[in-house]
Deep mutational scan, measured.
Amino acid sequence: DRMTSQEAACFPDIISGPQQTQKVFLFIRNRTLQLWLDNPKIQLTFEATLQQLEAPYNSDTVLVHRVHSYLERHGLINF
């Protein structure tokens, strides 16, 4: 699994950072998509996403918020 070119453009700090940071991003992105796909008729809020993310992935709330906002803005969740 890899970041898309659009994700890389929107998250230059992640793509240029350590490999582990990219893996954390990918986990948060994929898990958020999975959470929404589990029940697409219900809006997936940032707060609900954060509550359902497993530790330690829920510890970087800023990154979780950025990923959630990106997915929502680009019509990948909550459409």
Rank of each mutant, 00 (worst) to 15 (best):
D1Y: 09
D1F: 14
D1R: 03
D1N: 11
D1V: 07
D1I: 07
D1H: 05
R2L: 08
R2T: 09
R2C: 13
R2A: 05
M3H: 02
M3I: 15
T4W: 04
T4E: 05
T4S: 14
T4G: 06
S5G: 10
Q6D: 13
Q6G: 10
Q6A: 13
Q6L: 10
E7S: 02
E7C: 02
A8P: 03
A8D: 05
A8N: 09
A9R: 11
A9F: 10
A9D: 12
A9C: 05
A9Y: 06
A9P: 03
C10R: 06
C10G: 09
C10H: 09
C10V: 09
C10I: 08
F11G: 04
F11V: 02
F11E: 01
F11D: 02
F11R: 00
F11L: 03
P12A: 09
P12L: 06
P12D: 08
P12G: 07
P12Y: 05
P12M: 04
P12F: 05
P12Q: 09
D13S: 03
D13C: 02
I14W: 00
I14P: 01
I14K: 00
I15Q: 15
I15N: 07
I15D: 07
I15L: 10
I15V: 14
S16K: 06
S16G: 11
G17C: 07
G17E: 06
P18A: 10
P18K: 11
P18D: 09
P18Y: 06
P18Q: 10
P18L: 08
Q19E: 12
Q19P: 12
Q20W: 13
Q20V: 11
Q20M: 11
Q20R: 12
Q20H: 14
T21E: 10
T21F: 07
T21D: 12
T21A: 13
T21H: 12
T21G: 13
T21M: 12
T21V: 14
T21L: 13
Q22E: 07
K23R: 13
K23L: 11
K23Q: 12
K23I: 08
K23T: 13
K23Y: 06
V24C: 09
V24D: 14
V24N: 10
V24K: 06
F25I: 02
F25V: 03
F25N: 02
F25P: 00
L26E: 08
L26W: 07
F27Y: 09
F27T: 12
F27I: 06
F27L: 10
F27W: 15
I28K: 03
I28T: 03
I28P: 01
I28V: 12
I28Y: 03
I28N: 04
I28R: 00
I28S: 01
R29K: 10
R29F: 02
R29P: 00
R29S: 00
N30S: 07
N30V: 03
N30M: 05
N30E: 09
R31E: 04
R31C: 06
R31V: 07
R31S: 09
T32Y: 01
T32M: 14
L33W: 05
L33F: 08
L33T: 09
L33P: 00
L33I: 13
Q34S: 10
Q34E: 08
Q34W: 06
Q34P: 02
Q34V: 04
L35F: 09
L35D: 01
L35H: 03
W36S: 07
W36V: 02
L37Q: 12
L37T: 14
L37R: 13
D38W: 07
D38L: 09
D38I: 09
D38V: 09
N39H: 15
N39I: 01
N39W: 03
N39V: 03
N39L: 04
P40S: 07
P40Q: 08
P40C: 07
P40R: 07
K41T: 13
K41C: 14
K41G: 13
K41L: 09
K41Q: 12
K41V: 11
K41M: 11
I42C: 12
I42D: 15
Q43S: 13
Q43C: 07
L44F: 02
L44T: 03
L44P: 00
L44Y: 02
L44V: 10
L44W: 04
T45G: 06
T45M: 03
F46I: 14
F46E: 13
F46W: 14
F46D: 04
E47C: 07
E47T: 07
A48D: 07
A48Y: 09
T49E: 01
T49Y: 01
T49N: 07
T49G: 03
T49L: 14
L50P: 02
L50I: 09
L50Y: 08
Q51K: 15
Q51W: 07
Q51L: 10
Q51I: 07
Q51S: 13
Q52C: 13
Q52V: 09
Q52M: 13
Q52S: 13
Q52T: 12
L53R: 02
L53C: 05
L53D: 01
E54K: 11
E54I: 10
E54R: 11
A55G: 09
A55C: 11
A55W: 14
A55V: 10
P56V: 03
P56C: 04
P56M: 03
P56E: 05
Y57Q: 02
N58L: 05
S59Q: 14
S59C: 11
D60C: 06
D60W: 09
D60F: 09
D60H: 07
T61R: 15
T61E: 10
T61W: 09
T61A: 09
V62K: 08
V62N: 15
V62D: 11
L63C: 01
L63V: 03
L63R: 00
L63P: 00
L63H: 00
V64R: 00
V64L: 04
V64C: 10
H65S: 13
H65F: 12
R66C: 03
R66T: 03
R66P: 00
V67C: 05
V67I: 15
H68P: 02
H68N: 03
H68T: 00
H68D: 01
S69H: 11
Y70I: 01
Y70L: 01
Y70K: 02
Y70P: 01
L71T: 01
E72S: 08
E72G: 06
E72T: 09
E72F: 04
E72I: 09
E72K: 04
H74L: 10
H74A: 13
H74P: 00
H74F: 14
H74S: 12
G75L: 05
G75A: 09
G75M: 07
G75F: 05
G75S: 10
L76M: 15
L76H: 04
L76P: 00
L76D: 04
L76S: 07
I77W: 01
I77S: 02
I77V: 05
I77R: 00
I77Q: 00
I77G: 00
I77H: 04
N78C: 02
N78E: 00
N78Y: 01
F79Y: 15
F79M: 15
F79I: 06
